[in-house]
Write a protein that binds this DNA or RNA. Structure first.
Length: 270
DNA sequence: ATAAGTGTTGCGCA
DNA sequence: CTGCGCAACACTTA
């Protein structure tokens, strides 16, 4: 469930709290989420100093003096900065820092914690496959990305190799704001519709970032975000009236994901 | 009490 | 290129 807004907020907090600090030791409870053996992971990060934390799409990049730690929370999880002697009950990966604090990383279903040696970032396949950060894409670049592409609008937006950052929670309201059906073919999007879509993406994601991300995710200190259920327009509001026209919101299957939409405001033009 | 739904990603296959 | 189904593990809701 963490998507771009939550990850942007987490990157900001981590950058503020962790930059300049020393990683004294590393512990791993779920080796499956690593890209390298535990020993190599621990050897790479132990003793390193954190330089800064950024994000690309839903991936967090922790840059240190001896390589990179890439985190992806998958379908939800928490990154908590806690006293080393008061750890949460469950965690998958733990970084013990200076000042008797630890960074506890947990995810509910799956997630990734990858270590990449300094200077080897380009060789790593996962971030290399990411498209540009969705909030950095200008309208002109957005048009260029869409040019010649086939398929429907929703799968295109969810594909992280096209644009990095949009997930299945925010996409409902993005498409509603753009007045587009999730299954609208890309080839039938008018220039106006493309402009609306580009604007809707920025508006929706920035709105949540400004509120600290979604209420169901927490910050480094365990406090939930301020983007609440009542901030949703049609997403997860099956049967409730569309905020624009009052028509009941419907939930439909779109491939392997569900979509919420207003059948009147978001007709399929084909 | 059992089962389904839910988010993300990468993979293999048509 | 595109679309599909699948697998990974935990927790909530019908």
């Amino acid at each position: 469930m963490p998507e771009l807004p939550e990850i942007v907020c987490r990157a900001r907090e981590m950058n503020e709290e962790l930059a300049g600090r020393r990683i004294r030791a590393v512990a791993v409870k779920q080796p499956k989420c690593l890209n390298v053996p535990v020993a190599e992971f621990a050897r790479g990060l132990s003793g390193a100093r954190v330089r800064g934390v950024t994000n690309r799409g839903k991936w967090l990049f922790v840059d240190t003096s001896s390589g990179h730690l890439l985190l992806n929370l998958g379908m939800g999880g928490e990154i908590l900065l806690v006293p080393s002697d008061d750890l949460p009950e469950v965690w998958r990966v733990r970084l013990d820092l200076d000042r008797k604090q630890s960074l506890s990383v947990n995810f509910w279903w799956f997630g990734y914690a990858h270590y990449i040696a300094a200077g080897r970032l380009d060789e790593h396949s996962m971030p290399a496959a990411l498209g540009p950060n969705v909030l950095d894409v200008s309208l002109a670049e957005f048009r260029r990305l869409l040019r010649g592409r086939r398929g429907a609008v929703k799968p295109f937006l969810l594909d992280q190799s096209n644009l990095a950052g949009i997930g299945n929670a925010y996409i409902h309201d993005i498409l509603f704001r753009a007045r587009l059906h999730p299954l609208e073919p890309l080839t039938s999007l008018s220039p106006k519709a493309v402009r609306r879509l580009h604007g809707a993406i920025a508006k929706e994601l920035r709105r949540s970032i400004a509120k600290g991300g979604a209420f169901y995710e927490v910050d480094l200190h365990g406090h939930p975000g301020g983007f609440r259920e009542t901030d949703l327009l049609v997403g997860y509001r099956e049967g409730k009236p569309c905020p624009a026209c009052g028509t009941p919101v419907v939930k439909i299957k779109t491939g392997s994901t569900a979509s919420f939409l207003c059948p009147r405001c978001q007709p399929l033009s084909g």
